[in-house]
Amino acid sequence: MNPTANTTERVYSTTDDIVRNLSLVRDEIADTAAKIDEHEIATLAGLLGPNSRVFVAGAGRSGLVLRMAAMRLMHLGLTVHIAGDTTTPAISSGDLLLVASGSGTTSGVVKSAETAVKAGARIAAFTTNADSPLARLADALVIIPAAQKTDHGSNVSRQYSGSLFEQVLFLATEAIFQSLWDNTDVAAEELWLRHANLE
């Protein structure tokens, strides 16, 4: 028996597997996004004023989603900083910290929120856990009813770890961007002028 052949058979999915799992991911995202309270997202979006400085803090894949959101907010003309970057200034009164943590207990994210609160900044948070330390610090809170990354036996999602939270977080932040843009008269061509040209 050729062990390499057996490994290859185990690694590669069939077309049926892909079709089934595309449907699984699509349906879980649609079901979960439909359960988000739109008023929570609208309240959070209302904190993203055109003259405010926005700071973004997240860990892992949630942090990557927030970096994508930061890019879109920059395209809208907002002043946006990523926590931890070498050129990020101190957060202060009047600023907004945008954070995400499925569990609401991610130590670095909670610590960033605590620091921001002490500096007089407001907190806009996404989490699955309304009773978490992060949720208690938030001025605007969006609950995404997805499984937490360590909830491996959850009946909320069949996907691995925090995938569903991260996927719906992306949709929520895209909806925020689109809504903010809809309320401007700025053309896409003008937004494009702000897109990075040192890529």
Score class of each variant (00 low, 15 high):
93 S>F: 03
122 R>A: 15
1 M>W: 09
14 T>F: 02
188 A>Q: 10
74 M>I: 03
62 S>N: 00
113 A>R: 04
61 R>W: 04
151 D>H: 08
149 K>N: 14
181 W>H: 15
21 N>M: 13
133 P>Q: 13
97 L>A: 08
126 F>G: 04
199 E>F: 13
162 G>V: 00
65 V>I: 14
172 A>F: 00
56 V>T: 00
55 F>H: 02
22 L>A: 12
129 N>R: 08
114 E>A: 13
6 N>K: 14
15 T>D: 06
16 D>W: 05
74 M>S: 08
46 G>V: 10
167 Q>K: 01
182 D>S: 08
28 E>C: 06
97 L>K: 06
149 K>E: 12
105 T>E: 15
160 Y>W: 11
68 M>Y: 10
146 A>D: 04
163 S>T: 13
111 K>A: 15
68 M>N: 08
191 L>T: 09
193 L>C: 13
190 E>M: 07
85 D>I: 06
3 P>W: 12
28 E>Y: 04
90 A>D: 15
35 K>Q: 14
180 L>W: 02
130 A>Y: 01
135 A>H: 07
135 A>V: 10
83 A>I: 13
59 A>S: 12
180 L>D: 08
80 V>S: 01
97 L>H: 08
61 R>N: 11
174 E>N: 03
130 A>D: 07
46 G>A: 11
71 M>T: 06
71 M>K: 01
138 A>T: 08
76 L>A: 01
122 R>D: 15
103 S>H: 09
48 L>R: 06
179 S>N: 08
64 L>I: 08
100 A>R: 06
100 A>Y: 02
36 I>G: 03
47 L>P: 01
142 V>A: 05
43 T>D: 12
119 A>T: 08
6 N>E: 14
50 P>K: 07
10 R>A: 11
18 I>A: 09
123 I>M: 06
168 V>N: 05
176 I>W: 01
70 A>Y: 00
64 L>E: 04
138 A>P: 05
59 A>K: 09
185 D>Q: 15
3 P>E: 11
131 D>K: 10
113 A>T: 07
15 T>I: 09
132 S>D: 06
162 G>L: 03
98 L>C: 04
168 V>Y: 04
32 T>C: 15
115 T>L: 12
84 G>T: 00
29 I>T: 09
67 R>F: 03
50 P>I: 03
192 W>R: 10
39 H>Q: 15
4 T>E: 14
164 L>P: 01
124 A>W: 12
5 A>I: 11
93 S>V: 13
33 A>P: 00
42 A>F: 07
53 R>I: 02
158 R>H: 10
2 N>C: 15
34 A>C: 01
4 T>N: 15
124 A>F: 10
28 E>I: 12
111 K>H: 13
61 R>Y: 10
185 D>L: 12
96 L>Y: 06
73 L>C: 00
120 G>N: 10
31 D>I: 05
163 S>I: 10
70 A>L: 00
110 V>I: 13
118 K>C: 02
138 A>K: 14
151 D>S: 11
102 G>K: 01
180 L>R: 11
86 T>F: 04
91 I>Y: 04
173 T>G: 03
87 T>D: 00
115 T>H: 12
17 D>Y: 11
199 E>V: 11
133 P>Y: 10
17 D>P: 05
106 T>D: 05
90 A>E: 11
158 R>L: 07
127 T>F: 02
113 A>E: 08
123 I>Y: 05
77 G>D: 02
116 A>Y: 05
24 L>V: 15
62 S>E: 00
131 D>F: 07
106 T>Q: 06
